[in-house]
């Protein structure tokens, strides 16, 4: 198994920074994409791919691998950057996000991109697939863990709650879901559009074990994920308090950068901040 595992928090933080730079460059080059929700999920995805998950980038379809489902599929850039930085495909490919005849689709495509475990993009659906993968794991008595990232806006979808109910019903303790709780969706703040609060209490009421963390504190993230994968008897929801656009000051805490690409100057400013 040839995989880059980073043990120190410092190394993970540096890796996260590199991924944030990748995200900025990819979306700038593509001229479209979703920076805000990619940046808010970056530390979580970095911890998963570079420390927590049991994966083999040289064998992306390895049966016993841990799985990752990006249910909020519009954050594809963070996944692509993590996959490229892990060695699933060439970093060069990142320059061709959203281009015709290239594999990096606007939203994750499991058929085209090595390492993508589930096709997503229509919100609310990825978490159901994650439940299915976890069920298959139980059926086959596999040890793998399924990780899924969902958005708080996404949690307005009824299907999320169908899946959450099912995961608890089937006692899927091999499913760890992270709520990227950045409190902003496409148009504006979730609390104004359609409140999902109190989110943590809702997941608890649905029978999940809930861990609340700061989704940008690498130490807390790694600790929570490590606790979550060892937890028995219930699925685990990590409610990660995050900042939309995290790491690029002018993109932070605003819906304005949900789905807009940085221009040339924006990119220079962002890269300077992420140096």
């Amino acid at each position: 198994m040839n995989r880059k595992r980073l043990e120190s928090i410092q190394d993970l933080e540096n890796q996260a920074k590199a991924i944030r730079r990748d995200i900025m460059m990819m979306i700038h080059q593509a001229g479209s994409g979703h920076p805000g929700g990619s940046l808010s999920a970056t530390d979580i995805v970095t911890a998963l791919y570079f420390n927590v998950m049991n994966i083999d980038p040289e064998n992306p379809r390895w049966e016993d691998r841990d799985r990752f489902v990006l249910s909020k599929g519009h954050a594809a850039p963070v996944l692509y950057a993590a996959l490229a930085e892990s060695g699933y495909f060439q970093k060069e490919d990142l320059k061709h996000l959203r281009e015709i005849d290239q594999h990096l689709q606007g939203h994750p495509d499991m058929k085209g991109t090595p390492g993508v475990d589930m096709t997503t993009g229509s919100l609310g659906q990825g978490i159901s697939a994650a439940v299915g993968i976890a069920l298959a794991g139980k059926l086959d008595q596999k040890e793998y863990i399924v990780y899924a990232v969902i958005g708080d806006g996404e949690s307005q979808e009824g299907q999320v709650w169908e899946a959450v109910m099912a995961a608890a019903h089937f006692k899927l303790d091999n499913l760890v879901t992270i709520l990227d709780h950045n409190r902003i969706q496409l148009v504006g703040p979730c609390c104004e559009i359609m409140s999902v609060e109190p989110a943590a209490e809702k997941f608890k009421a649905f029978g999940w074990h809930v861990i609340e963390i700061d989704g940008h504190n690498m130490e807390e993230i790694v600790k929570a994920l490590t606790e979550a994968k060892a937890y028995k008897g219930k699925p685990v929801m990590i409610v990660a308090k995050t900042v939309k656009g995290k790491g690029v000051s002018f993109m932070e805490n605003t819906a304005a950068w949900h789905g807009n690409a940085p221009g040339d100057e924006d990119l220079q400013r962002a890269l300077a901040e992420l140096a």
Partner: peptide, 11 residues
């Protein structure tokens, strides 16, 4: 969706 997930694992 669950059926889709199961199918990704060869079911």
């Amino acid at each position: 969706g669950v059926a889709a997930g199961l199918a990704t694992c060869g079911k």
